[in-house]
Design a binder for these strands. Structure first.
Lengths: 336, 336
DNA sequence: GTGAAAGCGCTAACAG
DNA sequence: CTGTTAGCGCTTTCAC
């Protein structure tokens, strides 16, 4: 520490520029001088100061990823995908947990604005399209997971929320259900909106009248799902199935059912979204929507890095990936 | 973007120094000039360049956290604790997922060496005490979760692996078990070693002869636990309980048992470690060791930041926190 | 209370 | 192939 490039240069009997050259392999250096430099670096225990380097070279070779919650396997898998291809392309990845708070999201976005990272990948369901576009317009490099953005400089990867939500309802209807609860996430989230839309469209397709009292909000977490179900039970409404907008809320449904002695799936069918790891371990196993999380992360950084390096925009910038309904124990039951 | 402090200064009709002063509230500025500067900043959409700032001020106000795997609720909870107190103290936290690879661990450690972060919190069971001490000796600021380090500049927080492992065995013995399998994690990990030690000590306390054939390695993951159990079953050994060195491996045990039609806990008792979220959802619910994960993270950064700010070393630098055995369905059965 | 100027550690022209 | 020099954008003495 406190050893700088000039110290190495002095020790090796060369100029700082030469040391920099061997460090970055930026131009050819005699193998002899290279050896001298390496030796000096070794002996001094020199570590280049990345802050100075980044300031000078105007890049950091790091990508920031902002996620709503690090403790959700859905995001963790996406991050793994990002991490691995970024690593292969010599980029570092730093992960920022916004903990579902807009304030922290903004805080971590400054890492992008203030040039600590070269680009940011946003998984930010609370942020509006406009906000995202504005940041991009200011010249910052962004990519987005989980939604489509109408902006030709922002790579996006997403699944079709409307489509898979229709599939869920279709599956339930085909199993004899007509009174299907929809458990929504927090209202501000784009996913909430789109999944509700799919639910409504499917009902319409089947000519099932929409009953607004069957919509409840569970804020995308277990506790919220639990409370929402309690409210529904208390209202004595008739329903035979629940479509929870994510698996977390479905866990809350399980809990509420356990308390009331309601059997899943015989008395109530349940389907979630995300294919959280828990969904395959819980009893009964939870039907859910699976997305290619790892691939989504991997593909997106790939595009992002290409865009940064080639300094041009590709023809293909947005990717809609397929999701699949995984039918498990919680809904695998034909209602007569 | 591309707007610098001089641009703001020009627009506001002051010097760059003054702009810097209002930005950092470092010394008093007339409220009138302050207003002018703020206005210019606003109008120009200026964002300070943190790289330049960090270079000049020789600090970054950010802490790096290196974890073995971001997709494990155990680490995620610790990170939450770190994140929240760091945030309250004006520090940013960047998370690095080493994915259980020494190579990546080293890669991310360079963020510390190259001054991208002011300090690093290591959750690195694969790294040796010597390596950790060496880094500290070179003048880098470190803190460590999950182990005790004999070095007066490194704050540590950890639980007593030996102690809780003894408790697990005690619990099993008291329920009538004498032939207890120990499923170890990868051999290099300090946790593996210490948990085995606790297992052995407990056996000795109860005068139960140690049977080396009952030790298997499961590499701390589900697949490993599953394979290890299959090997044990194939050997036709007699045993009635399994102490898995973490919950992940215990899940593998469940799977292997399901395949062979072995009932948990009637035919085989199972206990894990970590209190992963899944352990309370799986059937039967999994007995495990719980640690105050969030608090561990929170307390450690607190100390770390204190140490950095006061530039002095506290009397109390290491924290041993209590863990608790949570007895659930997988071992709550008295063997006659 | 404010400005001028130096310099954090490095890289990238430009010479040689 | 290697050295000299300027400067990335900011903060911080030191004057005034």
């Amino acid at each position: 520490m406190d050893i700088k490039i000039v110290d190495v240069a002095a020790k090796a009997g060369v100029s700082p520029a030469t040391v920099s050259r061997v460090l970055n392999e930026s131009s050819s250096v005699t193998s002899k001088t290279k050896a001298k430099v390496m030796k000096a670096i070794e002996e001094l225990g020199y570590h280049p100061n990345a802050v100075a380097k980044n300031l000078r070279s105007q890049k950091s070779m790091t990508i920031g990823v902002i996620v709503p919650d690090i403790n959700a396997s859905y995001f963790a898998e996406i991050i793994k995908g990002i991490e691995n291809v970024a690593y292969a392309r010599k980029y570092k990845v730093i992960i920022c947990d916004a903990e579902n708070q807009k304030e922290k999201e903004a805080e971590y976005l400054t890492l992008l604005m203030n040039r600590t990272v070269d680009a940011a990948i946003l998984i930010a369901p609370l942020m509006s399209d406009e906000e995202i576009c504005q940041i991009s317009e200011k010249g910052y490099t962004l990519a987005v997971v989980g939604r489509y953005i109408e902006h030709d400089r922002i790579p996006c990867i997403y699944t079709d929320n409307v489509k898979f939500s229709k599939e869920v309802v279709q599956h339930l209807v085909e199993n004899g259900h007509r009174d299907i609860v929809f458990l929504s996430g927090y209202a501000e989230a784009i996913d909430s909106y789109e999944r509700l839309e799919g639910y409504l469209k499917a009902l319409r397709d089947y000519h099932i009248p929409f009953r607004p009292e069957l919509i409840e909000n569970g804020n995308f977490n277990e506790e919220g799902g639990y409370e929402a179900m309690k409210r529904l039970f208390d209202k004595n409404l008739h329903f035979t199935a629940v479509f929870a907008a994510n698996d977390e809320m479905a866990l809350g449904v399980y809990k509420a059912c356990a308390e009331r002695g309601i059997a899943i799936p015989a008395q109530l069918a349940v389907v979630g979204v995300d294919n959280n790891r828990i969904s395959k371990y819980i009893t009964p196993t939870l039907s859910t929507i699976n997305q290619p999380k790892y691939t989504m992360g991997a593909l997106l950084v790939e595009k992002l890095i290409d865009q940064m390096n080639e300094n041009q925009f590709h023809d293909k910038r947005t990717f809609k990936v397929d999701s699949e309904l995984i039918v498990r124990g919680s809904s695998n039951f034909r209602r007569e």
